[in-house]
Amino acid sequence: MADTKELINALSKKHGIERKSLLPILQGIVEKENYLSKDSMLEVAKVLDISAAEVYGTASFFSFLDTKERGQYVVRVCKSMTCDMKGKEEILSTIESVLKIKIGETSQDKKFSLLETNCLGLCEEGPAMIINDDYFVKLTPEKIREIFGRYLRNEI
C-alpha cells in the first residue's frame, strides 16, 4: 500500500490533480500494478478529491482499466469478425490449454490473465492478440505455443 501511495503521488505530480487527470493516473497504476485495487482507487479518490464511486464508475467503463485482479501479462485475444473468421476459436482454446486458464481467469502464479477483446485493428493480419502493449498477428496454434513458451521460460 505504501508503494501504491507513492506511485499515485508520483502520477498525480506528473498528470495533475484535476478531474481530467483521472484516466492517465488510472492507466499509470494499471501499468505498474496490472489492475486497480480497492486501495488504489480509494487513494486516487483522495488525491483528486472525488468520490470513490466516481473513480470506480469511470474505471469500470473502460476495457483496459481492470478493476479485477489481473496477472503480470494480460492476454487479449481479438474476437471481432475477421479474427473470428480466421480461427480465433482455435487460438483461444490453444491458449487455454497452454496457460491452463479459461477466458476471464488469471493463472495461480498471477503471471497471466486471459481475456477476449473487441477489434484490435489488426484485421488484415488476424487472428490477432495483444499481450500488455505488444501485438501478435497471424496467429496459429504453433505460434501460440512458441510465444507463450518464451513467456513461460521468461525469455520476454
Binding site: 471481432s80 469478425m81 475477421t82 477489434c119 485493428g121 489488426l122 484485421c123
Partner: peptide, 11 residues
C-alpha cells in the same frame, strides 16, 4: 480512437 471492426487505416 479507431475502433470500428474491420478498420485499421488510421493505424
Amino acid at each position: 480512437d479507431e475502433g470500428e471492426p474491420g478498420t485499421f487505416k488510421d493505424r
